[in-house]
Design a protein around this nucleic acid. Sequence first.
RNA 1: GCGAGGAUGGCGGAAUUGGUAGACGCGCUAGAUUUAGGAUCUAGUACCUUUCGGUGUGUGGGUUCAAGUCCCAUUCCUCGCACCA
Length: 682
Amino acid sequence: FIEMVKKGVAYRKESLVNWDPVDQTVLANEQVIDGRGERSGALVERRLMPQWHFKITDYADELLDFDGLDWPERVRLMQTNWIGRSEGAEVVFKSDQGDDIEIFTTRPDTLWGATFMVLAPEHPLVAKLTADDKRDAVNTYVEQASRMSEIDRQAEGKDKTGEFIGSYAINPVNNTKIPIWIADYVMMGYGTGAIMAVPYGDQRDFEFAKKFDLEIIPVVKPEDESISFDPEIMTEAYAGSGTMINSGPLDGAICNEQKGRKNPAIDAAIRWLEENNAGQARVNYRLRDWLISRQRYWGTPIPMIYCDDCGIVPEKEENLPVVLPEDVAFLPTGESPLKSHEAFINCTCPTCGGPAKRETDTMDTFMDSSWYWFRYLSPNKEDGPFDSALAQQWTPVNLYTGGIEHAILHLLYARFFTKVIRDLGLTTTNEPFTKLRNQGMILGEDNEKMSKSRGNVVNPDDLVAEYGADTVRTYLMFIGPWSEGGPWNSQGIEGVSRFLRRAWSLIVEPAQEGKSEPDTDKTLTRAMNLAIKEVTEDLDAFQFNTAIAELMTLVNVMSKAKNAQVVTTSSWQDACKMLVTLLAPFAPHISEELWSRLGHDTSVHLEAWPSYDEGALEQSTVPMAVQVNGKVRAQIEVSKDASKDAILDIAKAEPNIAKYLQDGDIKREIVVPGKLVNLVVK
RNA sequence: GCGAGGAUGGCGGAAUUGGUAGACGCGCUAGAUUUAGGAUCUAGUACCUUUCGGUGUGUGGGUUCAAGUCCCAUUCCUCGCACCA
């Protein structure tokens, strides 16, 4: 943290935060549900407080780059949307009192159609720019807006509301005086908290203009001439392509559907702004800096000290880590007990040695999960966070799994930390996790999320007591695709239980008398090699359910083949060995025991993963389907190297095929070796 | 509204360089074994049809010798984002 402070990545500033008045702490946006604190249920207030932040916004562009990462598309998109990059321009409007009012727009080409300006109710210039005769109405509106949660303000379909504040702004492109309004559809937290309103091209501005009877100036003549651009007739804003009109120097420019400077009209507008000193190109992000201060006792102390003479200074390195006092008094004051712990608060300024106060806020717990895998490499290191050489050697983590709920928070923070650690010179690693896979969630039998209140919780301990840990583990892998999850099904576990018991008795129980079928050797060897191939490929692809299905098939083949003669053959013994080896990741305990009973005195879990013999997968004869006009009419068995002509002869000789051939001529013969024959008859 | 993913038997699901739809399992049916039940084993199990055969992967079209798979349109479901300027 201190290194981050030194580097300017961590900083303290006043910030509008979610304040829970009952729990007396700041809450993360994620902990505010429908405008209420997740734990207390209290209406969350917005408060301006000095808090510690991380400059994650400095890394916005780099965080948008997923090059070289094998991550699910879904997660990449969620992060991309969260960061919310948009290209446009910043333009400075002057108030009629001479103030600079900066706005951000993605459509600078429509500047000539700006007929009013809207400020967020919290915008710092609102008080100054409000005319005396409007002050009461404006104050009422601002107060109403401040009481509303962000969720309420953003509710879909909400009617536009707003107040004219009695001042005007000068549109720098044409020196037109336009009225300044405040409205809660403009957010202080995005862009500059002020917009130029172009009702012709923006649906929100259009609705606002219609409601408050503000001017609408057409600036893009639609390409499709059947679309009317008469403001009196229009029922919605026009954001499509066309030719610029009523736009001074831009008149005649082509406006297409492209965003940013790829759009000729936008590009021309930005060039005009820059040439005329009225604005410039700018990239805006939805991402905001990460607020990490929490007014809680449980959390990592922020190692900063407040000195009246030296300001805010970091604790001396030899005094790290700052440890939470354990003798705190948990009193119902509504404040963190650290605030009343004199011995913790009062300290010595590391710079001047005078009396100073310790920071009493603690860190967001996401701080800790953002770099734990670095610390895991050197858990006993006392004089630093981790060993740089070990981190360089072992990171990035090559495979990471977790739920989709981590898509934005943990995974974005982890990427940010990795880049900061790199920029501190501790590693050259750019990304924390090379390959990411998300597992699905197992729901209750009613297809709802398991919860005590719903009474649909399936307790794994009870299942383990009844079926054993191996059965429960294996069933969890078999119940469905790992990445999708789905409802729990209590009946299905019986099938896995049976499978494991059959595998057990296959190896442990004595064989019955019986005669060997002629090709048992080959059948067993083929089944074994097929199982190695399929299980290996399925594991690589995280398809555990089909891997287990393949092992079930192997057990079925072996069960059929097993008898007193067969069990003495080497192909049987190889198959047993391989079955246990392949089963080991799913049912480790049973596998270990079976491995021992097969005569091994080392652990099966130390065995190398097996490879398979491609040649053993081949069969001397292969079954093929014979179709007439695309419909299967017969099954034939042909030698694996049979020629096309030979296959066709066999196919045509089938009685059921010959029957169809009598009725017409063969127009076409398609032979897909090893698969099927299709005869097109007319 | 924007973006992503999905829809296959009674159920969970399998199958994509286009090539026999329903692997594997649950459930169900019948039989063997058992005093009985449970467990186990064997056979069967997409739907319609006595058979022949026909139909079938959300819906409607298309391409192809051949479509769950490719193309166009469309419905519904799930998830994410959303008055983002």
